[in-house]
Nucleic acid binder design. Structure first.
Lengths: 214, 214
DNA sequence: GTCTATATACGGATAGAC
DNA sequence: GTCTATCCGTATATAGAC
């Protein structure tokens, strides 16, 4: 199914060239620790390359970071975009696809959500408006479907963003709070991942119930 | 109502002593930028004190941070604890109290959720287990209520953590994603806050619908 | 307790040999 | 392209006068 595949982890580069080694290492370390806490030396060590090569290929820590950040954001968005704008599926199957795709993505890259959200906090407007979340989401087919349902009276007449927030909250929150969740539930990583997979089937049910709340 | 007051912003210290000035400034800056991105100079400037005084009172940046972090976590938890362990209220009114209290708290201190979650990522086990989330939550009255409902068949038989995650997701997620939300919704801070206040009444309804999902 | 001046360490970045 | 050696700004922390 093309929908099922719409959200995908970037196929891990095979670390052939030095440039790719650095980029993959940078992605890993930045995602884990964020920009400020990351030292270029950490990246060089992770990539098993000489420190000087980092500047040779990417000029500065900041420029390297910007590349990683932009790609992470795009991964986030373009995945979403494919599903949001599929004109052939109804609301319910969009939710299923989103839950399914994002949960798989975050299981394979668990640091991405918190990374994106916390780095976005400090680089405020420039990146956000450059990515143009607004245009993308508001003009999406999914948003039109929600608004149509509201007009028909099938869905309570509140700001559609509430539904988006709830859906993303149900998908994303467990991953950003995973250290606490694992501690409370006495879970190892595999148990946690298993629980997230369970949620793929549950989220569409909850979402449907929520939509019908009058 | 005592319940309504259970979650409260720490009353802002009046910045009398130098020590309090530094602590309040540190709290503000750490919450905004996180540990790594914060410079002791930022804190000194914010507190309008001489840089050397920071070390005089708190020995090091790290020790000062640990104090702020611990207090932020405690604020988080003890607020929750009061409601979770109120034996005189049913599940529904606990949800209302939690949504009400936390949303007020986060409107007044919007940086706290992302701060706590992102700093917890790096200081992994020590703080989490020191706080003992597990004992607190698993033995809470609210957890017992959920388990009782499951046994009665009133609630689907899935791990109670799913419900906790959904509830906290609905409350917390909008705040950690607020830059994106505000951009998408074309909102200023006041509009955003207003929308969060709306959610106080909506979350209990959604939660109830979710619980009844079979 | 509060200030100025400074020691010390660390991290990003570059020069220059190979 | 890759290495070693090193420069230099910045940030934490302290010494010591007041």
């Amino acid at each position: 199914m093309k929908i099922k595949m719409a959200i995908q982890k970037h196929t891990e580069k095979t670390d052939t060239t030095t440039e790719e080694k650095i980029k993959n290492a940078a992605k890993k370390v930045f995602h884990q620790k964020g920009f400020a806490a990351t030292r270029t030396r950490d990246i060089a060590e992770e990539a098993k390359i000489n420190l000087a090569l980092l500047n040779y290929y990417f000029r500065s820590k900041k420029k390297l970071f910007d590349i990683i950040m932009l790609e992470s954001l795009q991964q986030f968005l373009q995945s979403m975009s494919a599903i949001f704008n599929d004109t052939e599926t109804d609301l319910a199957s969009k939710i299923s696809s989103l839950a399914d795709g994002y949960i798989d993505l975050f299981i394979s890259e668990p640091d991405v959500p918190l990374f994106v959200l916390s780095e976005l906090r400090n680089h405020p407007t420039d990146l956000i408006s450059k990515m143009n979340f607004k245009e993308f989401l508001l003009k999406s087919h999914m948003m039109k479907q929600i608004q149509a349902e509201i007009k028909l009276g099938n869905i309570p007449n509140i700001h559609p963003l509430h539904f988006i927030m709830n859906m993303m909250g149900m998908i994303v929150f467990p991953f950003v709070a995973s250290p606490i969740i694992k501690n409370i539930g006495n879970m190892e990583q595999t148990d946690f991942d298993e629980m997230m997979k369970q949620r793929k089937a549950l989220i569409p049910l909850w979402f449907k119930a929520m939509l019908n709340t009058k």
